[in-house]
Write a protein that binds this DNA or RNA. Sequence first.
DNA 1: TTTGTCATTACCCGACCTGGTAAGTGTTTC
DNA 2: GAAACACTTACCAGGTCGGGTAATGACAAA
Lengths: 208, 208
Amino acid sequence: MITIQVYEDNAALRHGLEQLLSFSGDFAVTGSFDNCLQAEAEVKQSPPDVILMDIDMPGMTGIEAVKKIRAINTKVQILMLTVFDDNTHILEAICAGASGYMLKKNVSEKLIPAINELLAEGASLSPSVAKMIIASMQQPTTKQQYDFTNREQEILALLCKGNSYKMIAAELGIAFETVRSYIKKIYEKLQVHSATEAVSKAINEKLI
Amino acid sequence: MITIQVYEDNAALRHGLEQLLSFSGDFAVTGSFDNCLQAEAEVKQSPPDVILMDIDMPGMTGIEAVKKIRAINTKVQILMLTVFDDNTHILEAICAGASGYMLKKNVSEKLIPAINELLAEGASLSPSVAKMIIASMQQPTTKQQYDFTNREQEILALLCKGNSYKMIAAELGIAFETVRSYIKKIYEKLQVHSATEAVSKAINEKLI
DNA sequence: TTTGTCATTACCCGACCTGGTAAGTGTTTC
DNA sequence: GAAACACTTACCAGGTCGGGTAATGACAAA
């Protein structure tokens, strides 16, 4: 018997979900809530196999709840329920620790198969979400944007690892002043004025 | 008519792919190569709609080729072909810019549907790959590891944006020396000795 | 009530970083 | 061959940072 917790503020839909799950015979709804404020405690007390979580709920969003739940439980499979095909929210939810998502309009036909897929494969994604995720992973090729020379690239990488000018000079076997010279050029190209700014920009824009 | 380039070092498989694509009637193989050393130039010269790319090839791996191709062409859909269900390589390929992958043993039945899915949806992923990708996005919750206070967290975040001590003090409306005091504690907790080290560690470990 | 933690401020000194300016070598390109 | 570029080194002046030390008030837990 697969245990399931439901978090959904719309009472009608929540009861619909409970009935749908009960009908199938394989699932037992062990908890059903109209908000996720206590979700962390509830999961801790009696961890279910699967959680159905609405994204848009008053008080705390489902995404925040997923983060809190994931912090204390890495096993439970979380399936997000959304009204709209809202790309950014879905991506956020997945980063937070959700394993799948489902549009509410598809619940009646696709919920049971999605849960089974979740349990069997560990994921449940539609092609459109897959595409979005792929796009988010494929860093746009901005490497050439600042047009660093090999040496500059190399020195920026070392700087980003937390090396001081001295250490970089020692590492590359060149003079301290040479390192400074490169770093000046790097700052100019990045349009920054300190090492922290440069490191921040370099890492966030995946220049290293 | 959909144009396709094939990169595959195994001659038998390469010819098989050509025939399979020709048979269907919808596809035209505009190029077929046993290595990807010239891939960049070939794509530049006559960009196809779809590229089939073997991952393991002599000289240059398919993954490197994907990076080079993506740098000059963001439109072409690239489908990777692999012998093994090799998780890490597939993930690398997707990060490099591939839009889908396929096991060679499944080519005969699934190649045509996969290409169509690629063109229609922009992605072609199996659940097992989807799971892997999701797992790679879900950063393990290490936020509590260093046990920062609210203020420390706040100051670290500002530091990571490239702010100087002065700027942080102004931003938070506290004294310069107070900022220094916090940063000393942050360095102690992170076990670092400079701003660049701290920023590097904070961003890479997703502490911000 | 005492101990602990958090948030706050301050000073000193030595080390480090930033910006400006200048100039030497070698390689590639026109 | 000249021009452009990458790589290399150097000095100065002023600003910033890092570590040590010390202190105050607030608030919570023991």
